[in-house]
């Protein structure tokens, strides 16, 4: 075991890790940040997506030691300073973009990264960029709407309801 230090949600933190400790285990077990979930073991589902130095990564497919010293952002760090929902979070609630909530943290983190790169994506771009996040509840309809709405676009009109 080695002490691994990084900055998570703006705070410098340390926890014990082995070589094989995945970032997601470091967050969940080492730091008690259980908002980041594990939904598969083949790096497909995206429930574990967090940001490392501003980039969305699958925290189940990164060793904690490999990102020692990095800036990590998780779902627990996404609300506004006053505790209210951030723009992406609010759009997901407004558009019913979640049901069971298990894939939601990964969806929110992927969306935030997507919009940072591409502030006004098309529907097709949104669907393509969400390729690595699996949701079993929503059929994606309201997730795509939420992402479009979070980008300031008229999601209702684009969904042609």
């Amino acid at each position: 075991m080695t002490e691994v230090t990084m900055t998570v949600n703006g705070k410098s933190v340390s926890a014990q890790a082995e070589g094989r400790t995945l970032l997601v285990n470091y967050l969940r077990e080492g730091l008690g940040l259980t908002g980041t979930h594990v939904g598969c073991d083949t790096s497909q589902c995206g429930a574990c997506v967090v940001h490392v130095d501003g980039k969305a990564v699958k925290s189940c497919t990164v060793f904690a030691m490999d990102v020692a010293g990095a800036q990590v952002l998780t779902i627990e760090g996404m609300a506004n300073a006053d505790g209210s929902l951030g723009v992406v979070q609010q759009a997901f609630q407004d558009h019913h973009g979640l049901q069971c909530g298990f894939c939601t943290p990964g969806m929110v983190m992927t969306t935030a990264a997507l919009l940072a790169d591409n502030p006004r994506p098309t529907e097709a771009e949104v669907r393509h960029e969400l390729e690595g996040n699996i949701c079993r509840c929503t059929g994606y309809h309201n997730i795509v709407k939420a992402v479009l709405a979070a980008s300031g676009q008229d999601a209702g009109a684009m969904a042609a309801e």
Binding site: R28, E29, G32, L33, T34, G35, T36, H37, V38, T74, I75, E76, M78, A79, L85, Q89, F92, Q93, D94, H96, L98, G101, F102, T104, P105, V108
Partner: peptide
């Protein structure tokens, strides 16, 4: 009505079985 449970799910504060320690 917007879902009240969304607040905890959207902020990483849902408590699923594996989240318990």
């Amino acid at each position: 009505t917007k879902r009240r449970e969304d607040i905890r799910f959207l902020t990483g504060r849902g408590v699923y079985t594996d989240d318990l320690s």
